[in-house]
Structure formats: structure tokens, C-alpha cells
Amino acid sequence: MKATCAPENALQAVLLDLDGTLLDTLPDLAAAANAMRRELGMPELAYELIGTFIGKGVDNLVRRTLSGQLTTEAIPEDDFNRARSVFYRHYTELNGQACTFYPGVLEGIKAFAGMGIRLGVVTNKPTVFTLPLLERTGLAEHMSVVVCGDTCERRKPDPDQFLLACNKLSAAPAATLAIGDSINDALAARAAGCTVLAVPYGYNEGEPVGNLPVDGIVESIMEASVWASNRFTGRFTASGTTG
């Protein structure tokens, strides 16, 4: 399937964020973060606070968890490396154990698949955590491409991951819908040239999504599929025909 064959205003692909968009991974991430703090002799943090630390990759999560706040002071490299190693060990054990799907995710995925639209995940989560999580939750079978936080030299909010995903799917960015929950998703997808939707239930560093530079805010992935069917007049199917 070549992007140049697309009819005007066709939808070729949907790229989805993972944490805070498809899955509520806070229970596992917070448990690992607090296990790290306990092992380092530090008191636990509230889950809600740790939720505001999510979105810019594991290294940022570790730094913020160490400092206990969004804005982190310089942390000695040896201290950070030790904390990172401890977090990785705990999260490797906990990854996928307590996370849950947000309402409408599976229904929305099925709806997009029914349109013949190929799906992908674009996440700042490292590959070592992303692929096992997709397998454990059953999401892997629905995704035609997965681009992780360590796949490209630059990650969200830079556009590289979205551009790579579009390339792998032979989809034009202008014919691609990106769905996420944070400013990082919005900025990256917008810079790549995608249409962008936000969901309001994710993390976004504790800030509301109302001011994000997006084309719309939807309550669920299922609602996103309805929005897309109204917005895009032509749709590629897996066989390359349009509907």
C-alpha cells in the first residue's frame, strides 16, 4: 500500500500512545517507584503524585521519583544509575500485573480494525518494558508497528517516532491519526504532521488536556473511532481499496 495512492482525506493509520491512553499503568509504575524508594531508604510517595511524573520516559520517572517532584535538581550520576537499576529490577517483575484497560479501548481498537485501518503504538516506554506489556495484555496482536522510547535517537515530544511509524506503515503523516493523553504526544504528533486527538483520563503531568494543541478531545478510543469516521471521508482497507 502506497501513501501516494490514497484518496483525498483518507485515513491510513492510527498511532496510539500506551501509558495513560490504552492502559492505566500507574499501579505497576507506582509500586515499582515506591519499591525503589524503600530500597534506597526513602519514604513512599502517593500514587497520585507519581502519576504526574509519567510521560517523558523511564529515566525522567526515576529522576522525579528520587526528587519527589516534577522539577528535579541535579542528581549525582552514581545515585541515578543505582536508582535506575533498582527501578528496572522491580518494574520488570511488576510490569503488567495490575494495569487495566481504560473503558472503550478494546471496542475502539475493534472499530478501527473493522474500518481496515492499521494500528500502531508510539510510546516513550523502553522496548524492554513495552513489548512484554503488549504481549501480556493481548495488545500486540492488534498492532502493525511498535515504536518505543529507545527506538529513535529522539523521543516524544520530538516527531521522530511518529515519522518512523508512518514510514513503516507506508502511511502519509497527513493521513494518520495520533491519539494520546499528554503534551508530549500532542507536540510530537503535530510536528510530524498528523491529525491529533487527546483523551482526558491519562496523566499529562497532572495538567488538564483542554489547552493541548490537538484537533479534538474524545472520552475514549471508541469515541475516537466515531470521530475519525466522521472526519475522514475515505479509508484504506488492508487490501488497499477504499471505503
Rank of each mutant, 00 (worst) to 15 (best):
E8T: 06
N60C: 02
G20R: 04
E8A: 08
F129W: 07
Y91M: 10
L212A: 04
S220M: 13
A111E: 14
F232M: 06
I75Y: 09
K56S: 14
A111C: 06
G202Y: 10
Q161R: 09
N211G: 07
A186N: 09
D19A: 05
D160E: 10
T195Q: 10
L61K: 01
Y201H: 13
D24S: 02
T52A: 01
L106Q: 11
G108M: 13
Y47C: 09
V196E: 10
E153A: 03
L94W: 11
Y102L: 06
A171Y: 03
V122E: 11
V146K: 10
L45D: 04
P173S: 01
R63V: 05
M222G: 11
G180N: 03
A35H: 02
L197A: 03
A198M: 10
T65R: 05
T195P: 12
S67Q: 15
N204R: 11
E44P: 00
N60E: 15
T241A: 12
T237D: 14
G104M: 13
F53A: 01
Y88W: 14
D78P: 05
A224M: 08
L197G: 00
C148T: 14
E153F: 09
V145A: 07
E93I: 12
S85G: 12
R37W: 00
V218K: 00
R155S: 15
L29Q: 00
L49H: 04
E141V: 11
L169W: 14
E207H: 05
A189Y: 03
M36C: 11
M1K: 03
L131V: 14
T151F: 07
A178T: 13
L70R: 11
D185T: 05
G41T: 01
R235C: 13
S220Q: 12
T4K: 02
P132Q: 03
N95C: 15
C166T: 02
T21Q: 09
L133G: 02
E39L: 07
M42S: 00
R155I: 05
A189V: 06
R155Y: 08
L197I: 09
K2I: 08
G138P: 11
L22R: 00
E73Q: 12
V14L: 06
I117M: 06
A98V: 11
Y47V: 11
N95E: 14
N230D: 14
H142D: 06
A189P: 12
M115E: 09
K156C: 13
